[in-house]
Each structure stands twice: as structure tokens, then as C-alpha cells.
Write a protein that binds this DNA or RNA. Structure first.
Lengths: 338, 338
DNA sequence: TTTATTTACGACAACGTTGTCGTAGGTTTT
DNA sequence: AAAACCTACGACAACGTTGTCGTAAATAAA
């Protein structure tokens, strides 16, 4: 069932039918009603492939993220999807698996009108940005969220990672930690660096000498990370506080503490960025900095649709910063009886 | 940059160029090389919208699921995406939010060639299946996974829910439970019913009278669920074992036990279906039946692509059943000192 | 009444690609 | 040497829709 057949049924030209369906002012209300009724009767729906092709608009956006097995990106997708559904858009998901090569390959795929806009959160490995610049040059609406990058000047939606880095570190200090380690997740990643800078700033403010031996560089290699954390906790003068930049590192630390028979929080206190809803039920319950993931998805999608619809030349690049919240739980408690 | 322009640069007709790019046998190897080289030089890529339209193939599949904020659907998507990426396909995500009306609306959207195939896991509410039959009739390749339904005879990928229902219940019995409650998540949902039937069968096998008062019907209404569970645990003869059909009900139960000062596992033991990687770190660690979510995604995607590629008339409807595994932890331990 | 304007519709050309068909020139077969 | 057959390419018509333009008939302005 296509336009031509529908037009034949109605004894109208197919261009008239097309216009009637799109509520053109050129068509009388009577005819519109007739067409609409017949279209419903025969269950006519426009061929989206033909329509997209003709208009060179796919009504589709792409979401490029490192992982979906994650309590953060889940709600983000949720937020994005809710806005997209309102707007009548479709959502493509691409996973980079923290692999920059995949990220490059994906951006390559998205350069030819398959999508009307792209939302990205970068992989841990992403050090170069030429593939992102390429997207920018092609004029494809692009929004970064959470894991951003400076170079392609595109709108960004992030959380107050630097301030939360300070808050998290000071929370450990307030609870008696003297030697605080920071577990970073990437050299390149904005969030990791901002959180670390907050950590360093908090140390300075509180007159604590920062010690590079307490900066543990982790990455997407879980086994390697475990070794690094284990090495850290086996040291003679092991840290009494750990600030994990992402949740998986905190969970690894839990595992290792269990193995090493270290008590949390008495031997070592732990705080992490996390969106896990099970954090309150962990043993011990985990102190977290929790990001407004769902809202982030919604905000980022809203910004993207502004770009898509208004075709704004992206002059005053929006840079939305949402606030995360620190939720203190037992993993950082100072006076917990053993 | 399109075919015509590329052809002009090469002094060839655009149909020759098109054929050369698709490695047609009609074109000499010399010409192919020239064309390929020039295409790379000028960074030509086929317009996917035009190509899809012409071939009436979108190279896209849809994944329709209830939620993504969930430790199960995350890895499933991961598995699906890994296969799709191999095949050069794109993955659209649609969330029903456990709402049948949304599910119907989404299936409506997918009837017109926007996607080459669909993978679905039904919403809790889905009682009717006319919208699914419609997809079947349109001849769109369709695969159900996890939350399936009998009526549209389509391939299904599930786990051994019935057997695991038995195993989980017997695990509680073995650990001393006499009064076991079952928290179902939907009247309609295959997984909920299969798990419940396993539960009932296990009771029968062990000569325990089943009691409808111990069958708690939950749904997507979290607050209501909490009331129901609270009511259950406040009873005079409250159950000493709880079998939650999905993880979120187990977490609710944890919360309520905390509020009611009930000790898990001494006062009440808990087992649940769950894919949360934090289960071992909960307080107490949570005994789970864990589904092979990633493999399920891969299997389901593989079946879908068989349908798409072979255009098999779906005669011997595949019905793949994967095995889940019961991991005993402290939430069901019988001899845990208080 | 004549001329300008609006209303409501139809004809038609794109959009970029793919696949069918036609064919000139060369190669093999009889 | 004529007939049959490849080889390698070009011409062209789709695919279904959208938007521009043209134009009768109806209405309004002169």
C-alpha cells in the first residue's frame, strides 16, 4: 500500500494525497478528511525509507557510549529515549567497548546522513580527536555528555566533577583519613582528570602533601587493575582512604579487601562515583557521589534537538553542568565498631 | 560527493562506478581498482538513505525491551550489538517501560520497513498479542527473548525458568525453609509463570502444601509492591523463605527487612533471579539464579539474522533454551550466626 | 465587465542508488 | 569467414516520497 494505490482508490492524484496527509494548506478540509479516512481504512503508512531518503532526514539519532552494562549509561539512555520518543525520533545505540578504534569506525559510519544527530560519551582510550573533528566539519549536530573532550567545540552536558572530587576527598579527610589514594580510570578522560584535580585541590586546601605513589592509573583492563589495587593495599604504609573515580574500581577494591581481610571502613574507607541502586545494600553500604544520569540523558537530548531543529550555527556552545550528590554511607564511617 | 560526481571525475558512467564499488563481475579489475582508489581519495561513501530506500533494506534491527536500567537487559544489548556489528547492522532501541500501550505504539512504528527485523522482550502488562500477530503477518522477522508469549509462533530464546524455579525453591527447602513465599512480577509474563510453576512443583515434590496467601502478585508499581511485601512480612506467621521472581523485588525485600529489623537469613531467607554483579557484595550477599544474559543476546541476534538472511519461512521454529546457574550466598545460609 | 487574486488540485522532476537490459568490440567456435 | 559468444561498459527505469510549478475554476477587486 503506497501513495499511488491510495490515490487511485480516492480518484485523486498522488501529489494531492501526499499533501493532504501532511496537512498542507493547499488542500481543502473536505479532501483532507476523505484522504485521512481512507488512509486509516486501508492502514496506509508512509514508507519511512522513501520519506527519509527524499527529505534527507532520517529521524534518527545515534548514541555512542562505551558500555551499557553499567548503572550510569542505563538511565542515561532512558532519559535520551524519553525525549526522542516525544520528538518522534528513533535511537540507534553504538558501543565502543572503551576501544578508540571502534569509536573511530562508528563515527565513520555516521557521516553520511544515517542519523540527524549524535550524542557521545567517549571511550577511555580516546586520545586523538580527528574523528570527532570530522563529524563537526560535516556539520552533523553533535553533543557530548559526561565523558567529554575540549577540541571539537560542541555542546557538552556534564556533572560538577571537579567540585565533587573536592567534596569526596574532603569527606574522607573529615572522617579521619590521612593517606588517601585516588584510582583514576584513564589518562585522557575528562571526568577522570577533573575528579583527580578536585582530589589534588582538596589535599592542598587541607595541607596534605600529595603523593604520586597514591595516584593509581587504572584502565579498561580489569585484571591489571586488580593487581594495581592489590599492590596498593599490600604496601607497608597502605592508604586509609580510597577515592575510586568509577564504581567498578570500588567493587574491585571491595573484593580485594575481602581477600586481604581488610575491614571497610575501619582499615580503609572507600568513596566512589556510582549510580548503582544497590549501593545502600552493599557490605558495608557504599558511600557514593551519585550523578543525575537520567536528567543528563534528557538534557543532552534536549540540547541535541535544539541543534537539529533550529540548525543553530552552534555559536554560544551550551555547556550544561548538572549537580551530583554525595551520599554518605558506612564505607566511609569513622566510628564504626569492628 | 555522490555517484554522479565520482563518475564524472573518472570519466565513467555512474552505473559502471556503482557496479565497480559493489565488486560486480561485469567490471574489469583495472576499472575496479581505479574506481576504488578514486573513491577513497575523494572519501566517497554510499548514501545509506538512498541505498536503503532502493533496496528496501534498512540494515537495521530493532530491540524492544521494557527497561534498560537493569542488570539483565544491559548485557543482552551488549550481546545483540556484538553480533549486529559483525553483520554490519545497526541497532535501534525502544523502551516500553512495562507499558503495553507503548509496546503497541512501537510495533506500529516498525511495520513499514524501517527495520529488517525485531527482537522483543515483552512488557509486564502485555496480555493481548494482536499487535504481535500484526508484525508476524507483515512478514517481518521477529524473535522473542526471555519474556516470550505463545501466540505468534516465532523463534524464542529463553532460559530454563521452570527448572530454575524448582531448583531455587528446593534450595530454600534444603536450607530449612518451611513457609516459602513467591513474589511474582506479572500475571501474563511467561518468565514469572514458569518460575512460579517451578516453585509450585518443588513444593509438591517435597510434600509442602502450597498456600495462595504466600503467592504475592507484584507488578511495575514499586510503591504498591513495597506495601504488599511489607504486609507479607508483618503477618503473624510470616514466611521464612522468599523467592523473588526478579531482582528488584529482592532489593525491596532487603529494604523492608531492614526497616522491620528482620535478619536475613536468620529470620527470612531470600533467593532471586538476578544478574547484578554486586550481588556478592550485598549485606548479606544475595543468593541468585543468574541468567546468561550476554549469550542470550547473542543467540537471539543470531537467530534473527538467520531469519533475515535465509528468509526461512520459519518452519521449524527455533526455541533455544539456555541454562541459568544458581549461586548460593549468605542470604539463604542456614547456619549463619546472628 | 474586466482584471487581479485566491483556492484546490494535478503534473512532474527530483533525491542517489541499484539492477535490468542493450550493445560495441573483441574472442572463440564451427 | 561466418556465426555464436563473451567482456566491459553505458543508458535507463525504477524505488515512494516531497516540493515546486502550472493552471483551471472560483472569488475578489477595479
Amino acid at each position: 500500500m503506497n501513495l499511488k494505490q491510495l490515490a487511485k482508490e480516492l480518484n485523486l492524484s498522488f501529489s494531492t494525497v501526499s499533501k493532504a496527509l501532511r496537512d498542507s494548506h493547499e488542500i481543502s478540509t473536505d479532501t483532507k478528511k476523505r484522504v485521512l479516512a481512507k488512509a486509516k481504512e486501508l492502514n496506509y503508512q508512509v514508507n519511512p525509507l522513501a520519506s527519509s531518503f527524499r527529505k534527507q532526514k532520517s529521524l534518527t539519532i545515534a548514541v555512542v557510549i562505551p558500555e551499557v552494562v553499567n548503572d550510569f549509561f542505563g538511565p542515561v539512555i532512558n532519559g535520551i529515549e524519553s525525549i526522542a520518543q516525544e520528538k518522534g525520533y528513533h535511537v540507534l545505540i553504538y558501543l565502543t567497548h572503551e576501544d578508540m578504534q571502534k569509536e573511530v569506525a562508528i563515527t565513520q559510519l555516521l557521516q553520511n546522513g544515517r542519523v540527524d544527530g549524535i550524542m557521545m560519551s567517549l571511550s577511555e582510550q580516546t586520545s586523538e580527536t580527528t574523528h570527532l573533528e570530522a563529524l563537526k566539519e560535516k556539520g552533523i549536530p553533535l553533543v557530548f555528555f559526561d565523558r567529554t573532550v575540549d577540541q571539537p567545540d560542541a555542546p557538552k552536558v556534564t556533572t560538577d566533577d571537579y567540585n565533587c572530587g573536592i567534596k569526596a576527598t574532603e569527606h574522607l579527610i573529615e572522617n579521619g583519613c590521612k593517606q588517601i589514594a585516588f584510582l583514576s580510570i584513564s589518562q585522557h578522560l575528562s571526568i577522570s582528570n577533573k575528579r583527580m584535580n578536585g582530589y589534588l585541590e582538596a589535599l592542598k586546601k587541607n595541607n596534605i602533601k600529595s603523593d604520586s605513589a597514591l595516584l593509581v592509573s587504572c584502565d579498561s583492563h580489569d585484571a591489571k587493575n586488580n593487581e594495581r589495587i592489590q599492590e596498593l593495599l599490600k604496601r607497608e604504609n597502605r592508604p586509609d582512604g580510597i577515592f575510586a573515580s568509577v564504581e567498578k574500581l570500588a567493587i574491585s577494591t571491595y573484593k580485594i579487601c575481602e581477600a586481604l581481610r581488610l575491614n571497610i571502613p575501619n582499615d580503609v574507607k572507600i568513596i566512589t562515583f556510582s549510580n548503582s541502586y544497590t549501593a545502600p545494600f552493599l557490605n558495608p553500604s557504599l558511600t557514593t557521589v551519585t550523578q543525575p544520569a537520567y536528567e543528563m540523558g534528557r538534557e543532552a537530548a534536549a540540547v541535541l534537538f535544539k541543534l537539529i531543529e533550529k540548525k543553530k550555527p552552534a555559536s554560544p556552545m551550551e555547556n550544561i553542568v548538572l549537580n551530583s550528590v554525595l551520599i554518605a554511607r558506612n564505607s566511609t564511617k569513622s566510628e564504626l565498631a569492628r
